[in-house]
Simulated assay, not measured.
Amino acid sequence: MAGVAGQPIVHSLSPLIHTAWIAAAGLDADYRAFGPEDAAAFADLVAAGRQGELRGLNVTAPFKEQALALADQAGPAARTSGSANLLLFEAGRVRAESTDGAGLMTALAEQALGLDVRGQAVVVLGAGGAARAAVAVLIDAGAEVGVVNRTRARAEALAAALGATVADADGLDRAVLVVNALSVAPDIDLSRLRDDVVLMDMTYRPLTTAFLAAGRQRGMTTVDGLAMLIGQARPSFRALFGRDAPDVDVRTAALAALGETS
């Protein structure tokens, strides 16, 4: 038994993706959605995992930072980003991992061919758990990362913790990549951006967000959140079930669930 925990969780595509892989691999396993109402309920779910009721949990908003705090040990990506999107339970202990960064880089490789962030300005919008993972992996890839957030103090705290900067208008002007890690459409002037900038949105409902649609109208390259979701799910599946995800077309099934065709 494994699953994904978040709030809200009803629209998560993670169960669809993992269930398809479980079926293709012929595993005797189950992967389902859990919707703890609050931090206390999430802690109870983790406690159930400690007791052997779960093999592991993917974790989404708003519990990623709490997930790391509840763990007994953490992998390098989780420690660096200060959040976890994967908890693994074994012999009463909890290990935290983060596959969000790997998912982001996989999505960029698939949908932004030729993008090289090394030595380049990159801007991440947001300061939550997903934003932290994005900042961490992009810094590791050699990018000069700036953070923009509605609450400047949170952006400053994230930047100080991970070695980024707080981005200003000049940072947006120079960026080769802008990643939206907010749950809402960002309020930025796309006319200030480079013509060859890549726009990425971690949200996949809708697949083409207003942010991405505006970028496409300007001829900009865009990367959708579904590519990142599938990208982070693959290493999660390996960690949860001890084998690589089968080579089956889960994106088409996910697009159908979203009512999208491409």
Rank of each mutant, 00 (worst) to 15 (best):
G103M: 05
F89I: 14
P76V: 10
A102I: 12
R132S: 15
A78N: 09
M105Q: 13
L108Q: 02
Q120F: 00
Q120C: 10
A74M: 12
A133M: 04
L70I: 13
R118E: 13
V122D: 11
A133G: 03
L70T: 13
A91L: 01
A91T: 01
R79D: 07
E110I: 01
D100K: 11
A107N: 06
Q120H: 02
G75K: 10
S98W: 05
D72Q: 09
K64S: 08
G129T: 08
M105R: 14
L88M: 13
Q73Y: 00
A91E: 15
K64G: 05
A84E: 05
S83Y: 07
V124F: 06
A77E: 15
N85D: 13
V124T: 07
A91Q: 15
A131I: 12
G126Q: 11
A133H: 03
A133N: 03
R132H: 01
A130D: 06
G103K: 11
A67I: 06
R132K: 14
S83V: 07
G128R: 13
L125F: 13
A102E: 14
G119W: 01
R132T: 04
Q66I: 03
Q120A: 14
E65R: 14
L68T: 07
E97H: 12
L108M: 09
E110D: 14
E110F: 04
R93H: 07
A109I: 03
R95D: 00
D116Q: 12
A102R: 11
A78V: 04
G129Y: 09
E90I: 00
D100C: 04
V124K: 07
L108T: 05
F89T: 14
A78K: 09
A127V: 03
L113S: 11
A84N: 09
R95T: 14
A112I: 12
K64E: 03
A96C: 08
A121C: 02
R93P: 00
V117Q: 03
V124W: 03
G119A: 04
G126V: 12
V117E: 07
A74W: 04
G114L: 06
Q73W: 00
A69L: 12
R132G: 15
A107Q: 10
L87S: 07
M105S: 01
L104R: 03
F89W: 02
S98R: 05
R79Y: 01
E110R: 15
Q66W: 01
V94D: 10
T99W: 12
L87Q: 02
G128Y: 03
A102M: 08
E110L: 15
L86R: 04
V94Q: 13
A96W: 01
D72I: 10
E110Q: 15
A112G: 04
L108N: 02
V94P: 06
A96M: 09
E97R: 10
A131V: 08
E90W: 00
L86T: 15
A130Y: 07
S81I: 10
A121K: 09
E97T: 10
V117I: 11
L104I: 13
V124M: 09
F89C: 15
R95M: 00
R118F: 13
A67K: 05
E97F: 10
L88F: 07
G103F: 02
V123I: 10
A127G: 10
S98E: 02
A121W: 00
D100R: 08
A96P: 11
G129P: 08
G128D: 11
T80S: 12
Q66V: 02
